[in-house]
Design a protein around this nucleic acid. Sequence first.
RNA 1: CGGGGUGUAGCGCAGCUUGGCAGCGCGCUUCGUUCGGGACGAAGAGGCCGCCGGUUCAAAUCCGGCCACCCCGACCA
Length: 573
Amino acid sequence: MRWSQLHIPTLREDPADADAASHRLLLRAGFIRQLMAGHYSLLPLGIRVRARVMTIIREEMNRIGGQEFLLPSMQPAQIWEKTGRLAVMGEEMFRLRDRRGAEMVLGVTHEEIFATLALELASYRELPQFWYQFQTKFRDEPRPKSGLIRVREFTMKDSYSFDIDEAGLDVSFEAHRKAYERIFARLGIPAFAVQASNGTMGGTDSIEFMCPSGAGEDLVARCPSCGYAANLEKATSALAPIQDAAEQAEQAGQTGPARLDTPGVRTIEDLAVGYGLAADRQIKTLVQIVDGELTLVLLRGDHPLADQKLIDATGAAAIRPAQPQEIQAALGALPGSLGAVGVTDYPIVADLALRGRRGMSTGANTDDVHLTGVDVERDIAVGTWADLREVTEGEPCPRCATALEFVQAIEVGHIFKLGRKFTTALGVTVTGPDRETITPIMGSYGIGIERAMAAIAETHHDDAGLTWPVPVAPAEVTVLLLSVRDEAARAAADELYASLLDARVDALIDDRDVRPGVKYADAELTGIPFRVSVGSRDLADGVVEVTRRATGEKERVPVAQAVTVLQGLLAER
RNA sequence: CGGGGUGUAGCGCAGCUUGGCAGCGCGCUUCGUUCGGGACGAAGAGGCCGCCGGUUCAAAUCCGGCCACCCCGACCA
């Protein structure tokens, strides 16, 4: 490719409103342009990176036995009704009707459609299967942001495994986990695996691959000692045990909570400061609407709720905090004096940290009144015990008790053990060795291609621009013709460019009639790993200058050896 | 959806409070001088001032409505 033919130029100034570094640089360097919120055009340089990322992923998928497919993005809504996900996905799915009025959706993911193909599987002998594709996904995100990191239309490599049983799924899942580690290593993304919630996918286990970055939208709790890592929506910690003995003694003989008038008290802190009732001796009562049902959520006074944990614990599609009037109507008091003692009309979900606690205080469901001496298991009709609290940085690792660190990160991949939800709903079965009917168990595995590009850009840039790793760079080498008017230099640059292409080195040539400084600046901005400067001055000595973008190292090499030297540099890894 | 902000030339912006010829920098075109780290001079081209309506002799500017985009909070690759 010749720079003189490149249609979209680089920008001299930073574009407005580009928050993340990757967004700013990909715009400036001419890799992407925005059409509307969450929808980007990929330009020729962007397409080259995307193709390389896809090639690496494809190689690793094929290596573990993956077979490539391409399924439609536009799908009948009916299939999604069969699995119940039309409702679960809700507003996130784009919906449309065709001219006959048939309801269609744009795929947010392809479990249903791949499972439809799996209907043709007939025998256990055909399992396991790994099927994958690169396909555009559409998600009506409430708030697209940060360039390619969060968009509404993007390419996803999604793969699906079908196995006879759980043991088989474990093997398929593990194969994918290893493949993902190889993929991110080859892409130059410093990703690490973390435990995660399954969310709307359902199923049992899931692992996210996280790339540490200030532009990331997730927080991960990670143990620097034993390697434990989990998304905050899933992470736990080992809490120091709390001694309730003193309070127990005080309340010896009591058979129930005692009333405490607390005029004006509205917060956990008010109660702690004004009445000497420490936050970790209080029960925090939150009221949430869980799939439309008013639910009491109990946590220790000093613990925040992790919303996703509540969703996971209740199997809800959606939760939201209750409005004050809803709370008033249900419990007879406003936030600040709420409690679950004696409540039987509403489901109660309590965090495990409250289990066995005694001598606790909580609201009395009368404004300005609290209860003390509450024995959680004696006085409260807890329906569900679950891990609900969000861990705090510095709490002890659940495995080894080392203080947990928080890391901000971009989620670049996610793998799920799905179970039989989709195969059951769609009626996928195979015949087993004893002629029994087997419902295959599925796994699903995703990587966002453009997001991966953004993650690479986030982790590979400097003040001058992008610094792509060789395997994903838009080109391996750019030849800079510095002396445009020197015919000998022009001929030498053209010849070198042709020789590089002959040697199957992916090269660009910057033959524009602009000053050398512009070419240097653009070579650096676009981040091509090696540049070869061809100019009259060095050519008089029979040499060209080879510069490594990432480090700035320069080397003068004889023209005749330039191709060989570059091949050597490119082969380094 | 809630809160905050912005829409003026390809890009970045000023002008708006106080209504009166639509501007600046970069980029672009032509000519000349330059030419190994984003050159200089001269002459040019380029506008639905987001859209619709209102007020006014007169609206980028004031008023109303709508739309789009960005940022901050609830979702995911």
